[in-house]
Design a protein around this nucleic acid. Structure first.
Length: 618
DNA sequence: GCAAGGTC
């Protein structure tokens, strides 16, 4: 039994093509590529080759996903070098429970060549396209940057099929905020005081954008004088417990509840995993296998100070099978604690926070939905209908162990009877304005990447970090929450950003500092400490520049990446081949490349306009 | 000096 650690092989261009000045960047579309073993993997490769000599059968137990399948072929080729007669088998498994492993060992299958080929295509395309575009745009735009004294700050202008769409999301939202035009609307509010309770009724039309129309309707209400109760209803309601934890969800929650960026959360989760406290942190699966013994995992948490009692409660009858989400990567279970560790024994506060979240999330999954009762009163007033509602939380259940969710009772509604009439204590027209969306936050960005298939669970955080180090975007704590009903929309959004180029700013301006300190936001109204993403002038210039070239398929939108994903799937399903996909995609990108190089002036103008603040030439 | 994908 031995192991690898991720991919065994690396790929790079051969000879002169390796050097930035050794060839024209477009030569990289067809330059020869060598496969070699990186120095830090040599010992692993040699080990496998040597061990193969003493074996007659090789069992491959890499992750059962696409990349894992490809790694399997790397292991196979390495082992065959040592022993040409080696038989190769592949184990199919998705968790490491004893029974599951035994059954996987007893019914081995073969490596899925299609999946491995799909990955081989991805590797080649990422390398060729990434390297050619990166060199091309760096080499052509650097003179411009140098002429403006920015050659030192901006070393590389990289292009990647994941980083560019990620940047595109940030820029797109920035412009949506910047170009937002508030629109006035009007609504009707009704309040009635009964049994000393102020009951606020909301208009079933919400609001309308025509003042006169609302005024006429409102007049009719007043003319009617009396409101009549048309419906009184009390219904049981519930707040669902969360789904089993995936990587994407962990990262979103990290930003939202733990005040950590996604890369930080992943680093910590990886440490917790390596130390044996939690299961594998990179998973897309949000459903637990039937076979897994969840009660015994709950049992381990009974000794916890903060949540032990709750865990005991689950064992004493409160246990409930977790909900099943729609995703299953067939490689890993949802993230869950695998052993008990006393929080003080963990390395630091950040580690404790992530660990606590994972344990609480797991216990919440094994608990019951929260139950409540919702009352609704509807009235007819003039020609219009209005409703008021109240919530009473009856059983908190999972909420007791999962403080990240909020669900609280509202004021109780007084008793109303159908048919009852009253003259509302207050009725008035209210003017409001639509308000702009906020800048993208990290959870927003991760959700967008997830929805558009940009990156994998293991790499999304890296792509986000990448566009930060490339100085395409910067982050800052969100100063205020923009959501406020009705009036708001003052013009805070027309100030400052995008952040001035790369200039004068150390790296990582965010609230890193000491653990948990949100000091820089605490005083602000509605500050919640979540980071928001704002493009730099450099990021805006790149996106606007490329978009200005008018390609059929935008380089800054997620479509190209999605297409690659579809093509990989087609290879997996034997509908096409690796060769075909690589050839087709390279042809398409070469066309984009040629068009882009012909229109570099558009990109230069965009740099002049956004980065250097100069008027466009000619 | 390039990419994205594994993973310590």
């Amino acid at each position: 039994m031995t192991s690898v650690a991720g991919h065994l092989n690396s790929q790079d261009f051969e000879g002169a093509y390796k050097s930035w000045n050794g060839c024209s960047p477009d030569a990289l579309f067809e330059a020869p590529i060598t496969t070699y073993v990186e120095n830090d993997k040599k010992a692993i490769a040699t080990n496998i080759e040597t061990q193969a000599r003493y074996a007659s059968v090789l069992f491959i137990w890499t992750d059962c996903d696409r990349e894992g399948e490809h790694i399997g072929t790397e292991i196979r080729e390495t082992a065959l070098k040592g022993n040409r007669r080696l038989e190769v088998r592949r184990a199919r498994f998705s968790n490491i429970e004893r029974a599951h492993i035994l059954s996987a060992a007893q019914s081995p299958i073969h490596i899925d060549e299609n999946q491995a080929n799909a990955v081989a295509a991805r590797i080649e395309l990422d390398l060729r396209i990434g390297a050619s575009f990166t060199r091309m745009q760096t080499l052509t735009l650097r003179p411009l940057l140098e002429a403006h004294g920015m050659g030192e700050e901006v070393k590389v202008l990289s292009y990647g099929s994941c980083q560019f769409p990620t940047l595109g999301f940030v820029v797109e939202r920035y412009f949506r905020v910047k170009n937002f035009v508030p629109e006035a609307y009007w609504s009707i509010k009704v309040m009635h005081l009964k049994d000393d309770i102020r009951v606020n009724f909301t208009w079933s039309r919400g609001h309308l954008f025509d003042r006169l129309a609302v005024f006429i309707i409102f007049e009719r209400c007043l003319a009617a004088g009396l409101a009549r109760v048309t419906k009184v209803e009390t219904k049981p309601t519930s707040k669902w417990k969360p789904l089993p934890l995936t990587t994407v969800e962990l990262q979103k929650c990290g930003s939202r509840f733990l005040r950590m960026d996604s890369q930080r959360v992943m680093k910590i989760a990886e440490d917790l995993y390596t130390k044996g406290w939690i299961s594998y942190p990179r998973t897309e699966t949000d459903q637990f296998d039937e076979g897994i013994d969840l009660r015994s995992i709950v049992q381990k948490q009974v000794q916890g100070h903060a949540w032990g009692q709750f865990a005991q409660g689950l064992l004493d009858g409160g246990f409930n099978q977790p909900r099943a989400g729609r995703n299953n990567d067939k490689a890993h279970p949802p993230i869950h604690p695998v052993n008990f560790v006393d929080p003080p024994a963990l390395a630091n506060d950040e580690e404790r926070r992530v660990h606590e979240f994972i344990v609480r999330r797991f216990l919440a999954c094994c608990s019951q939905d929260a139950r409540g009762s919702k009352s609704t009163v509807s009235i007819a007033y003039g020609s219009e209908s209005f409703t008021a509602s109240g919530l009473q939380v009856l059983e908190r259940n999972y909420l007791d162990v999962y403080p990240y969710d909020k669900w609280t009772s509202t004021q109780q509604l007084p008793d109303f009877v159908v048919g009852e009439t009253f003259e509302p204590t207050e009725a008035f027209m209210r003017e409001g304005k639509t308000s702009p969306p906020g800048y993208l936050t990290e959870p927003d960005l991760i959700a967008l990447m997830d929805a558009n298939g940009i990156g994998t669970d293991a790499t999304m955080a890296e792509h986000i970090a990448k566009i930060k180090t490339r100085q395409y975007v910067s982050t800052r704590p969100r100063g205020r929450v923009v959501r406020a009903e009705g009036e708001d929309g003052d013009d805070v959004f027309d100030e400052e950003p995008p952040v001035r180029g790369a200039r004068g700013r150390g790296r990582g301006c965010g609230a890193r500092g000491r653990g948990g300190g949100d000091n820089n936001t605490r005083g602000n109204t509605g500050a919640d400490g979540v980071q928001e993403f704002i493009p730099t002038t450099l990021g805006v210039a790149l996106v606007q520049g490329y978009d200005g070239m008018g390609f059929d398929i935008s380089l800054t939108k997620p479509f190209l990446r999605k297409e690659m994903e579809l093509k990989m799937k087609a290879i997996c399903e034997n509908r096409t081949t690796r060769r075909e996909v690589v050839q087709q995609s390279l042809e398409m990108y070469r066309e984009v490349y040629v068009k882009a190089t012909r229109q570099m002036d558009v990109l230069r103008d965009s740099f002049r306009r956004y980065v250097f603040n100069e008027p466009p030439t000619g």
